[in-house]
Design a binder for these strands. Structure first.
Length: 308
DNA sequence: AGCCAGGTTTAAT
DNA sequence: ATTAAACATGGC
């Protein structure tokens, strides 16, 4: 089945795809030729979604194709997920007003006009990804993710190509410590992932309930989970729930980006980022994504230059 | 070779 | 209330 999604606020589809394409090891959020593909598990059914942008930044229109889907209800659920992933229900323009006094962000906003922080289909995915991503370099983290996804995620075949979904709690519930170690997760991370997954399955942790909580309560709730510190909780609110008022200020990527664009002489602390982020009000998280995204573009450009 | 990566926990000042 | 060490591996 197929449907068209009309959006009445700006959307830079390409910028979001660029964000998903940061690593060539990415195997869940797939992008090429301005087309986004990903496997979603909706109501226990694995589905491939194919999203194409057929509008403009100012008049965005998305073409959503779900091969094999014959139920209008299911399709409507999928559509909600797509809206979540691309933050279609949030307007980015108030962010531009908020940071209009900041020259650095102003410039980045013009360059990537319409870019919105992407959101994971589930909070669980953001949690597992964040725990996986603690402390290590991005390249290695993407290797870990790929191994986890290939081993535990659903496999989907379409046009003789293989696609993988990010593992659901059920799919991860039977993984053992040793299997995670074999994939080169640290013992600690293996414990965190297993513990979290068990608690979610058992109902001891209610991730859906987080959506109804305010920022402080949600952060507090998440940080009670073993393996979830401040950075992870903040990251999950932003990347996994689209809470634009939150910034994971201790994030090394964000700190590097702030250091670079605000021309500090040495790497700034998370504390310094928080201080600066006060000026970004309820849109700190958006600022973080614009900085990360621009910093990545900058590094890519440098890498290309050095390759010659 | 050694330090730093999308940090957190535990234990010791 | 801060500070240190351990955890794990790859990139530069």
């Amino acid at each position: 089945m197929k449907t068209i999604i009309n959006i009445d606020t700006p959307l830079n589809f390409k910028s979001t795809l660029d964000y998903f394409s940061r690593s060539d090891k990415e195997i869940v959020d797939l992008c090429n030729d301005n087309v986004y593909q990903r496997v979603l598990v909706v109501k226990d059914r694995p589905l491939l979604i194919i999203v194409k942008s057929v509008g403009t930044v100012l008049k965005p229109v998305l073409d959503l194709y779900v091969p094999g889907c014959r139920s209008a209800r299911l399709l409507s659920e999928v559509e909600q997920k797509v809206k979540r992933i691309f933050s279609l229900n949030q307007d980015i323009r108030p962010y531009y007003r908020e940071i209009s006094g900041d020259e650095v962000l102003n410039k980045l906003s013009k360059r990537n006009y319409g870019f919105k922080p992407p959101v994971t289909p589930s909070i669980y995915e953001a949690l597992i990804w964040a725990i996986t991503g603690q402390q290590m370099n991005l390249s290695f983290i993407y290797s870990l993710k790929a191994r986890l996804v290939i081993k535990c995620g659903v496999k989907f075949r379409y046009n003789s190509r293989k696609y993988y979904g990010f593992p659901t709690p059920k799919e991860l519930s039977s993984i053992s410590q040793d299997e995670l170690r074999d994939m080169q997760f640290s013992r600690r991370k293996a414990e965190y992932i297993i513990g979290l997954t068990r608690a979610v399955i058992k109902g001891d942790i209610d991730l859906k309930g987080l959506e109804r909580m305010n920022q402080e309560d949600a952060l507090e709730y998440l940080m009670k989970i073993k393996g979830v510190g401040r950075w992870t909780a903040e990251y999950v609110l932003l990347r996994g729930m689209g809470r634009w008022g939150v910034i994971p200020a201790d994030d090394i990527g964000i700190r590097n980006a702030v250091t670079h664009f605000y021309k500090y002489k040495k790497q700034v602390s998370g504390r310094e980022v928080r201080k600066r982020a006060k000026a970004w009000g309820e849109y700190k998280g958006c600022a973080a994504f614009y900085l990360l995204s621009a910093y990545h573009q900058y590094k890519e450009k440098n890498a290309n230059r050095l390759r010659r």
